[in-house]
């Protein structure tokens, strides 16, 4: 158990940036690379993952007393798979166009290790409220990362953003960006950017600390 009482705001905010599931933990790469060739697809995948993650975290956290640890992973997987199937059918019925775009990648949310990771490392050992807050933070962070990647790839690869034409008819699309290599390249460059920003912030913090020491 964490020694100090965890701050709900901290648990939410950490998923957005410091422990961002994609940029910091590098988890959930399969959907990250596979469906981010347009911003809409990224949003839909992020939304579906959001639902599955928050619902699973809620359930795992509420049931944690009754799940023996020997079968906990299998139970988590059953819970996650149930929610994934629910969202799969719901999308198929309510938003068939989006479902057609995402295709096989909705069922593959089951194997998104980010979701299982949250159950194992957080939801199974915290209160329901904190688990849901943590899941919300992680899901928003994941959605943010998907959207960042999807936006870059759609703008360069198609000249549009969320379907809006940005450059006019003479735009030359970078075909590579909507192909798998474009996903890897963009993800690599975004990770580079994230690490650079994190490093810069750390240096800044160190310098501030030094100044404080000198000041006192």
């Amino acid at each position: 158990m964490p020694t100090s009482k965890p701050d709900a705001y901290q648990e939410f905010i950490k998923g957005l940036w410091r422990d961002n599931p994609v940029f910091a933990q590098v988890l959930g790469m399969c959907p990250m690379l596979a469906v981010t060739n347009s911003a809409v697809n990224a949003l839909a995948m992020g939304g579906a993952t959001f639902f599955v993650l928050v619902a699973s975290s809620f359930l795992v956290s509420s049931l944690k007393r009754w799940i023996p640890k020997q079968v906990r992973i299998s139970t988590y997987v059953i819970i996650i798979a149930t929610f994934v199937t629910v969202i799969d059918y719901s999308l198929q019925a309510l938003l068939p166009a989006i479902h057609k775009e995402l295709g096989a990648f909705i069922p593959l949310i089951v194997v998104n290790c980010m979701i299982l990771g949250r159950q194992e490392s957080f939801a199974s050992r915290h209160s329901i409220g904190l688990a849901v807050i943590d899941a919300l933070g992680m899901a928003v962070g994941f959605l943010f990362a998907l959207l960042a990647l999807g936006s870059v790839r759609e703008i360069l690869g198609n000249g549009t953003w969320l379907g809006l034409d940005l450059f006019g008819p003479n735009f030359e699309p970078w075909v590579i960006m909507v192909l798998p290599p474009g996903g890897f390249l963009t993800l690599g460059l975004l990770l580079l950017l994230f690490s650079w920003l994190a490093e810069r912030r750390q240096k800044l913090a160190e310098r501030l600390a030094e100044m404080e020491v000198e000041g006192t």
Partner: peptide, 23 residues
């Protein structure tokens, strides 16, 4: 252990089937 898993599977099956039927 077996009971836990079976129960989870059963509940999951019920949920999936009802969603399937509904959609």
């Amino acid at each position: 252990l077996i009971l836990t898993l079976s129960l989870a599977g059963l509940l999951s099956g019920i949920i999936i089937v009802s969603v399937y039927e509904a959609t």
